[in-house]
Design a protein around this nucleic acid. Sequence first.
RNA 1: GCGGGCGUAGCCGAAUUGGCAUAGGCGCCUGACUUAGGAUCAGGUGGGGAAACCCGUGGGGGUUCAAGUCCCUCCGCCCGCACCA
Length: 823
Amino acid sequence: MTDYNFEDIETRWQKRWADGRTFEVTEDPARPKFYCLEMLPYPSGDIHVGHVRNYCITDVVARYKRMKGFNVLHPIGWDALGLPAENAAIKRGIHPEKWTRDNIASMKRQLQRLGFSYPWSREVATCDPEYYRWNQWFFLRMLERGIAYRAKAAVNWCPSCQTVLANEQAEGGTCWRCGSVVEQRDMEQWFLRITAYQDELLDDMAQLPTWPDRVLLQQKNWVGRSPGAEIDFAVEGAEPIRIFTTRVDTIYGATFMVLAPEHPRVDALMAGASAGAKAALATLRAQDRRARLEGQVEKDGVFTGRHATNPFNGERVPIWVGNFVLMGYGTGAIMAVPAHDERDFEFARKFGIPVRPVIRPAAGALDGASMAEAYVGPGVVENSGPFDGLSAEEALATMAAHAETKGFGKATITYRLKDWLVSRQRYWGTPIPVVYCEKDGIVGVPDAELPVVLPKDAPFTGEGGNPLEKVPSFVDARCPRCGGPARRETDTMDTFVDSSWYFYRYLSPQKKDGPFDPSAVRYWFPIDLYVGGIEHAILHLVYSRFWTKVMRDLGLVTFDEPVTRLFPQGMVHKDGEVMSKSKGNTVAPDTIIARYGADTLRLYILFVAPPEMALEWQDGQIEGPSKFVHRVWRLLDRHADAFAQELRERIPAELTPAARDLRRKVHQTIQRVTDDIEGRMKLNTAVSALMELVNEIYRLEPEVSKGPMRPVFQEALEALVLLLAPFAPHICEEMWQRLGRRFSIVDRNWPVADASLAREDEVELAVQVNGKVRGRVTVGAETSEEEVRRRALEDPKVQEAVAGKQVVKILVVPGRLVSVVVK
RNA sequence: GCGGGCGUAGCCGAAUUGGCAUAGGCGCCUGACUUAGGAUCAGGUGGGGAAACCCGUGGGGGUUCAAGUCCCUCCGCCCGCACCA
């Protein structure tokens, strides 16, 4: 007997895989392909358990698919640009590149230590100039088409990260990376016109039927499509003010108008207002923006002293400024219909503004003076001149059309989605490839001069400002058009640009004359499975969809969506909290591997919870999978070498009951493990099934491992090793070899279940009388329903329960139970 | 507040379509082997009860021969969204 020396076994096979280039793949039209993708890690320094979970899931699927005969692409890379590297440079004086490369090297060792089946020749690091040159190339293509543009806008500024952020990276008014409250600043910045694709982002969800609803719902909410109308309200002695509403059907009930405090017309309208009113306005403007955005501030407002005219009924309505109206949405101005909008109602009651119902609910008329809350349900339009009698729904279209005919409005659609702000005032990102020429303005760097490379000698002082600005050799440039002096753009790109298309680069990572090889894309795309954290639902997963659509319009790909199946894995918790560096509750995979081995860690992570659910890390729980691996080791260690020496014999036609039991369990397990991986990815129950198989082999080992039934035992051991291989690949390679089989198990055919062998010969049926189990009968699997019924009623316990009563009916659920109803 | 998900032994979790609740694992108990065991092997392990039986999937109600699963209602936890006109 030999000890299970996992360290020796694992390092030996990892080396063998590397030396044999086992997981390298090329396009092979003769075989079906499977593109198995995981979200690439940021090289922070350590692989954490969350990564391990993500990559264990994909590795099982990748190895399984390969054993099934698929040509599997399962690559990995590094999301290697970003702020932490630069902060390390400031704090510790290490260059971001060195910091990043060192981290990549140690994390790569950690991944290899886990035995993941990566084709390392395809490894991509986004900080490589040969990678980010294609960011620049895409940017120039977008610039040519007006998808990339520079504009002044109110943007989110993170004072801690010292850079601007995109809208979705400042959700809730806080920075996605550091959590600081962001400030609003008016700045000129670079944007990508994602809003040009907003309808497609919604409509193409129809092509993503296997994406989880919650992800699609989040994306849908984020795009925030609201059909409505824009209406111009005339203002006495000034230009009209345009409002946006989704309820134009209620416009006859508008009793006031409200502008956002930041609305550009407010100052002029209030020029003649009292000092008190101006002070009130200043108070509104000083309110915390984040709190305002989240509705945590009590509604407040100030009357401007001016009036507007409702174009539908010519009525004069007072113009207010209110803190609940946001400049960033619609036109920053609303018509307020307190009778039919909760917010307007609250405001109107606070300031004593009249409430006039114009929708009549089925339950009866409303009274504006006494109603306790706004009525927002359906009904019939009333008090609305020529539109009376229409349903509210009909009125929406009719009244918008009316406004358009009369020239004071039109039907429109407003979106919450804003263009993607991609410029960052930091060093460790992709330089935006443009120069500013005094004569020619903004000029793109010619393709031939790409990549624009980050200078190595930038000063990292941490004193604010982008280090690139302090590198004259970088900033001073020539205009490609006129040859005159020009200033190079020092902003760099959002790192979400890098991750928007990295999965194309894996296909041809060395390609010099383009971002990827189109024929490789035709072979490998779309991605068959994409596993990663759900926190990217509205960030990376929206940007990636957008990027592919842009690439399609550039003629680079022919499809609309890059990912067929998205599988967000659950988080890893410890002590009831998300495991994270900042919480200080992390578990280092290295420590676990040193103590238990990579195979055990992999099994534990997959076994302890279903992949989509939160996993609560509990130290003791790993003992189960650890014992299991040892049990497998001892079992194979007892028998493998002998089988390797023997001639392979056929399984006898006649089996002993024990051999029959074992064969049945083997084929049932093949069926279960295959179904569990294939369908709902229930990898936890797949591991359970393997544990059951091992328990059964142990139970039957004394009877089946010797004598004429020995080939059945051999079949069981080989099936076990094959089925376990995707989960615990090292020990299975070892055992496959010990069984006298050839390297490598990754190419072995996945076993096929024989349904006739898996079927039970006999089944025990529970017999219920009026819903209670009163007896049991064991019958052959093929017994007729008639016979089952008869046998059920023969059972003495059942007879007792039925005695003296009338049998109303008998239901037989094949293979399950018999239900007798009496009265 | 709105939307979605979840709630099963002491703990992590199983349970195709409604069909014997608690598979598998942890922990615990007993035994075997042992100088020893935090190793291994075997057995046991929802609650009550001497037993027959009864009760049990967050609480309450309903549909059904049959409910963890379907319906209503309440409670708790988690995740999204949240003054978006």
